[in-house]
Nucleic acid binder design. Structure first.
Length: 680
DNA sequence: CAGACGACATTTTTT
DNA sequence: ATGTCGTCTG
């Protein structure tokens, strides 16, 4: 039996062992929040609480999985705990209660790309495509509509605040929203936002269901509560209202999802919503060395919003001072970092204990190239999702037809892949076959259609129907996918010249597909719990030394930690992002983002930037981030090329690369070089 | 009407 | 560097 008192400090212990009643845990970075949840779940399971009555809502599936699998190691019963994201939880409930909500059978989830396509069709139907050229594009329209839901404010306000150049189109966007809602209702489909919206409706309007759920989920925990939006806040309240056994955990200084409607007022208002709530603060930091925390504390101190926080290390120093590295260009930076990563690995810091973090995915591309060149395996998190790439969507569309043969978007995609079928033909064909309601019916209709069709695509269409028929007969998901793959591969080779790398993706996908028991499950997981690119889960048993380096957006790095962290792209315009600069609150969020990034590091922290930038074909000078150009930060960092104090990297290799690091923050030299470059 | 080609803008963060 | 939109041709 585990002795919790030995493992936990007094506040952690209190959070773990207080089971009944509302609790708000304010957990600073690295204060052992994951441990608290891990042991609390274990503690509950060992104290005669049915693990099935515990609900753990987290921000990513990764987080839920991590905490539950740790808890399972102490107490196997924990595997029965219900855990996941708000969205996946909503999906499960909506499926269970789809009849009550008025869905005939089931419903389809629209991924982002699909909801954009649907919105595009709505625009076409409303004749908005021939408008003046400055009309917002489908992805912008989706973002506006989604933001209006997540921030709970009218479209007009969103346009004025976030898209002032489109503020004249309020009525049009409103009409599109209306049409889009109708489309979704007619086609039995829900987008991501709908999952939350409909769940809230279900809980609000249906007392019986609400009570039943409260009785089922008697103990609720919500992680990263500072990043929930008003819908999630309401859902939490509705679920926990009856029994009030609810613990939320968060850190207002780490709120980084404001752009998606997260309101940290949720965490502030929690004690008001649940009177009698106990507030437990976890402040001791178990993760980082004090020199790293000094940087983090200075970042906090420079923010507008004064967070009454000061991170104190419980760990002893390792002697590595955080470093600021300035380079001429992105190639020097990539080269230096790659070499440093290798050196550290040779010194015993395994690759998977190291991470490179950045504000936006595209920042990492030169470094990725260098890492590949030097044969350093890495795993990319965040940025464009695997399932959003065209070839994956092509392949999945065929499977989607199996699950819901009336999925117009999926048919459209599959049909237009056939040579000779474009948007018009696809629409006509779909119109002729969509009357039937099941796969069999639709396929036989399609078969008839092909019989006496003499058009140039008839043969290929026949082939598609044959393949779909074949797939629908197959019992095994992996097998079904193989059939599709065999059919799709020639098409892939025809339409993409880089088909080679795309085929690898599809093979990885095929492997994943084989692990599922039903197509529906597979597709829902892909939509809601997006699998990471690559093969992270395929080989979990690899020894430490062979696990890859992590490359991640700061957003996706949330809640995680590494021995060594490199934060690249520390320039103004990247962190903070240039899109945030005209709004104080948005800059503040960028500031918190920086704070999150810094506090991921346990022992070593490197901040880096390069001064030579390219934008729209022009060379420009990147200035150091304003977050570094602030009181007390620079002094906490050891500057390479600036401070010439004692240095632990005097190996020959490093010397040559260090020479490339700028001698100081020398604008003149750079501008001269930029001049030189412009001549050619 | 499909599909190729070229012009153009567009690049945040995620379920 | 990439993807989206419009135009032109067969």
């Amino acid at each position: 039996m585990i002795n919790l008192k030995e493992l936990l400090n007094s506040n952690q212990y209190k959070a773990v062992t207080t089971i009944d009643g509302p609790i708000l845990v304010i957990a600073g970075a690295g204060s052992g929040k994951t441990r608290v949840i891990e042991y609390r779940v274990m503690y509950m399971a060992q104290n005669h609480i049915d693990p099935k009555s515990i609900l753990l809502l987290t921000f990513t599936r990764r987080a839920a999985h991590e905490m539950l699998s740790r808890a399972c190691k102490h107490e196997p019963k924990c595997s029965q705990v219900n855990g996941g994201t708000f969205h996946s939880f909503a999906y499960k409930l909506l499926k269970r209660y789809s009849k009550q909500l008025g869905f005939e059978n089931s419903f389809t989830i629209l991924e982002e790309g699909e909801s954009e396509e649907a919105i595009h069709n709505c625009c076409a139907r409303l004749n908005y495509l021939k408008k003046e050229k400055r009309f917002p594009k489908k992805d912008t329209l989706r973002a506006i509509i989604s933001m209006s839901i997540n921030k709970n404010s009218p479209i007009k306000d969103i346009l004025e605040k976030e898209y002032p150049h489109f503020s004249d189109y309020g009525t049009e966007v409103e009409n599109i929203r209306q049409k889009y809602i109708e489309y979704k209702l007619n086609s039995n489909s829900l987008d991501y936002d709908d999952l939350l919206v409909y769940l809230r409706i279900l809980l609000t309007d249906n007392k019986e269901i609400r009570e039943r759920l409260a009785a089922q989920y008697k103990y609720i925990m919500v992680d990263e509560y500072q990043d929930t939006n008003f819908l999630q806040g309401d859902i939490t309240f509705l679920l926990g209202e009856a029994h009030k056994n609810i613990m939320v955990v968060g850190d207002d200084a780490q709120s980084i999802y404001g752009f998606r409607g997260a309101c940290h007022t949720n965490i502030m208002a929690f004690p008001d919503k649940f009177p009698g709530c106990q507030i437990i603060k976890l402040e001791d930091n178990y993760r980082s060395t004090q020199t790293i925390l000094d940087v983090a504390n200075s970042v906090l101190a420079n923010m507008q919003n004064r967070y009454s926080k000061c991170l104190i290390a419980t760990k002893k120093e390792t002697g590595d001072k955080p470093k600021l590295l300035q380079f001429k260009n992105t190639y020097d930076e990539a080269e230096w970092i790659t070499r440093r990563i290798k050196d550290l690995r040779d010194d015993g810091v395994a690759l998977h204990h190291q991470a490179v973090l950045y504000r936006s995915a595209y920042i990492s591309i030169p470094l990725q190239a260098e890492l590949s060149k030097r044969n350093i395996p890495y795993q990319v998190y965040g940025g464009r999702k695997f399932y959003e790439t065209a070839h994956v969507r092509d392949a999945l569309s065929h499977l989607k037809i199996m699950v819901n043969p009336r999925n117009e978007l999926a048919w459209h995609r599959a049909l237009t892949l056939i040579k000779g079928i474009g948007p018009k033909n696809a629409e006509r064909i779909f119109g002729q076959i969509s009357a039937a309601s099941d796969v069999k019916g639709i396929l036989s209709k399609a078969g008839e259609l092909c019989k006496d069709n003499k058009s140039r695509f008839a043969n290929d269409l026949r082939k598609l129907i044959l393949v779909l028929d074949e797939t629908s007969k197959s019992k095994d998901v992996g097998e079904a996918f193989e059939i599709i793959l065999e059919y799709y591969t020639p098409i892939l080779k025809r339409i993409y010249d880089d088909w080679n790398s795309r085929i690898n993706d599809l093979e990885a996908l095929s492997e994943i597909a084989g692990r599922y028991n039903s197509l529906e499950e597979l597709l829902a997981d892909f939509a809601i719990e997006s699998p990471e690119r690559g093969t992270r889960e395929v080989k979990p048993e690899l020894p430490d030394e062979e696990l890859p380096l992590t490359m991640s957006t700061i957003h996706s790095a949330k809640g995680l930690e590494w021995d060594t962290v490199f934060i690249i792209g520390m320039t103004d315009g990247i962190l903070p992002s240039k899109f945030s600069l005209d709004d104080v609150n948005e800059v503040e969020e960028e500031h918190r983002l920086f704070y999150v990034a810094v506090t991921r590091a346990k022992n070593r922290l490197f901040l880096s930037l390069h001064h030579e930038g390219f934008e729209q074909g022009l060379t420009q000078f990147n200035k150091i981030s304003r977050f570094l150009d602030e009181p007390n930060i620079i002094s906490k960092l050891q500057r390479k090329g600036l401070s010439l104090g004692s240095d632990d990297e005097t190996t020959e290799q490093n010397k040559t690369t260090d020479d490339r690091i700028l001698r100081g923050y020398n604008k003149k030299e750079l501008l001269r070089r930029i001049d030189e470059m412009l001549k050619h």
